Amino acid sequence: MNANQLINSKSIYLQQHAHNPVEWYPWSKEALDKAKLENKPILVSIGYSACHWCHVMERESFEDLEVAKLMNAQFICIKIDREERPDLDNIYIEAVQVMGLQGGWPLNVFLLPNQKPFYGGTYFTKDQWIKVLSGVARAFSQEYKELVKSAEGFGQSIERSIIDKYGLKKRNTGFLPENARELARKLAKGFDPEWGGMKRVPKFPMPTIWSKKTWVKRFVLPWKKWVWEVFMIT
């Protein structure tokens, strides 16, 4: 069987799906642009190598030619390794929870071509999955305006600031360098000097988090903004 777009992925989990008949893409500009160009909903499926139900759903549905044919015809399908992209995993877990559903893995979320989520869920049996795919495809074709309204509502909830979300209040307290140093000291106490990562279980290997470039991009820059907010609120 021919390989899909996951064949060159560094993730072991994504490599495991590289020979599915589903035309999987990694999270990429190419896939997102393709959804807009073809005006198709996006299916984001998130899992990880040690996830039992992720492999069950792969065996029951993602390796099935009938299911793959439906997925390929109606959706732009994106596979994500939650251990490689915890940032995206967090976003879509919250999106599903905002919809009033329970999060977990495999996490399957449907997005409009503009990447706004409108429906999701976790594990589905093959029969359930076919019904979900057919229902979503039909809604996208026949009830698009309603999906847009739903997506806008979920988006507003997800995008609320920390202050609005938790009912916090601002205060006019200046930011001090010592505040940042104290936060860093407290954070460092949670590092595991022997095995790496944080002192907690279960441990998920997330090597990209600790690379210098990724750390600055994903943590230091957002952290600066977050620190400023923290010391401006009571």
Rank of each mutant, 00 (worst) to 15 (best):
G47D: 04
E66K: 05
H55D: 06
E58M: 08
E60Y: 11
L37C: 05
C54H: 13
M57P: 07
W53K: 10
E60K: 14
K40Q: 06
L65T: 15
E63P: 06
S61R: 11
V44Q: 12
I42N: 01
I46G: 08
E66C: 00
E58T: 12
A68N: 04
G47I: 04
K36L: 06
V44F: 14
I42C: 01
L37D: 14
K40Y: 04
H55V: 02
V56Y: 12
V44N: 13
V44H: 13
K40I: 04
N72T: 05
K69G: 07
S49Q: 09
N72V: 03
Y48L: 07
W53V: 11
N72G: 03
I46K: 09
A68S: 12
S49A: 12
I42L: 00
N39Y: 07
L70E: 09
K36T: 03
C51I: 09
G47C: 04
A50N: 14
K36S: 02
V67H: 00
I42A: 02
K36R: 11
N39M: 10
I46R: 07
K40D: 02
W53T: 09
P41R: 06
C54Y: 08
F62I: 06
I42F: 02
L43E: 12
K36I: 01
K69P: 04
L70A: 09
C51N: 05
E38D: 14
G47K: 02
A68M: 03
L65M: 15
M71A: 12
S49L: 09
A50P: 05
A68G: 06
I46Q: 07
S61Q: 09
E66S: 07
L37T: 11
E63F: 08
V67E: 00
H52W: 01
A50I: 05
A68C: 08
K36H: 03
V67G: 00
S45G: 03
S45K: 01
S45P: 05
S45Y: 02
V56Q: 12
M71H: 01
D64L: 00
V56A: 10
P41K: 04
E60M: 10
V44M: 15
K69T: 14
K40T: 04
N39D: 14
E58F: 07
L37W: 06
H52M: 01
I42S: 07
H55I: 01
L70I: 13
F62M: 06
W53H: 12
F62D: 08
L70F: 00
V56D: 12
C51G: 07
E58C: 09
A68F: 04
E38R: 12
V56K: 09
C51T: 07
A50S: 15
N39S: 06
H55G: 06
L37A: 13
I42V: 11
W53A: 11
R59V: 12
D64V: 00
E38K: 11
L43M: 13
H55W: 05
L43V: 13
F62R: 08
E60A: 11
M57I: 07
E63V: 02
M71N: 01
I42D: 04
E63S: 10
K40M: 06
S49G: 11
Y48R: 08
P41V: 05
E66H: 02
M57H: 11
E38S: 11
